[in-house]
């Protein structure tokens, strides 16, 4: 049963997008978030949409996974559209309904803002769909490296993240085991009034915490026995490397930005 466990949303693959250095992906998405707000006309929107959709197709992540990532935010996108539809009073009047008046400006504005949302979410979910959590951790550790100078615990933070990732499946299995044991002792997790069900969480949480603390203690001891003494003087097996393809993507992305600035004035 544990074989089905996928941490995060990562969909394994060998595409160009998968193979990019995680730092490249994070950097590009970081800038993408900014430039999306610079788009102000049909041409600039098309440019960005083409870039986002092209990335999506190159990644070869099945569309249903991407749609699944979008489900929680569909509502937000539609809501933004409708809000603008009602509030914006620019352009020509299309028609009015009792007290509501709909203008072309509202449709365009609503569409533009929803599109921004859509593009942002598409690109960020593409990051988590094509990058393992551990790659993201490595990239963050590397990119935050300069903060070490101001005594920010970059290495410790990254190690904490990777150990948490490592233990998520273990703790999930543990939760399942304990809830089975308590269900056998007559605890009902599924039916009954909310108050009763909330109370049923105690026999689940206490053992879970006790065991998590015990694990942490043993893990700390095992790490010490294996010579862990902080980030100082450590080497790393997993290494990040900027390849030709990363440079290529940076250049391409620079072109998109240039194109965007140029088309803004259309």
């Amino acid at each position: 049963m544990s074989n089905s466990l996928i941490i995060g949303q990562y969909v394994p693959g060998q595409s160009l997008v998968h193979k990019l250095d995680p730092r490249t992906k994070i950097t590009i998405i970081f800038f993408f978030v900014f430039i999306v707000f610079f788009a102000n006309n049909l041409v600039s929107y098309t440019l960005l949409t083409v870039f986002a959709l092209a990335s999506m197709f190159i990644s070869r992540v099945p569309i249903r996974f991407i749609l699944k990532g979008l489900t929680p935010v569909w509502f937000l996108i539609v809501f933004t559209f409708i809000l603008h539809l009602f509030v914006t009073k620019e352009g020509t009047l299309i028609f009015d309904l009792y007290i509501f008046e709909f203008y072309t400006g509202g449709v365009i504005q609503g569409f533009a803002i929803s599109m921004r949302f859509f593009l942002l979410i598409l690109m960020t979910s593409l990051l988590t769909l094509t990058t393992t959590p551990i790659e993201i951790t490595d990239a963050i550790e590397d990119m935050l490296h300069p903060l070490k100078k101001v005594k920010f615990p970059v290495h410790e933070l990254a190690l904490m993240m990777s150990i948490s990732l490592r233990f998520i499946p273990t703790l999930m299995q543990e939760t399942e085991k304990i809830s089975r044991a308590q269900a056998s002792r007559g605890v009902d997790f599924k039916t009954g009034p909310i108050k009763e069900r909330a109370k049923a969480v105690v026999p689940l949480l206490v053992p879970l915490f006790v065991s998590a603390f015990k694990r942490a203690e043993e893990l700390a001891m095992a790490m010490e026995a294996r010579g862990y003494q902080g980030g100082e003087g450590r080497t790393k097996l997993r290494e990040l490397k900027i390849e030709k393809r990363d440079i290529l993507i940076y250049v391409l992305f620079a072109c998109v930005i240039a194109g965007l600035i140029y088309t803004r004035n259309y």
Partner: peptide, 14 residues
């Protein structure tokens, strides 16, 4: 070098 009792609680890597 030491190997402990609980296989889970000494596996550090992902």
């Amino acid at each position: 070098g030491m190997v402990f009792q609980n296989p889970d609680n000494q596996f550090v890597g992902t």
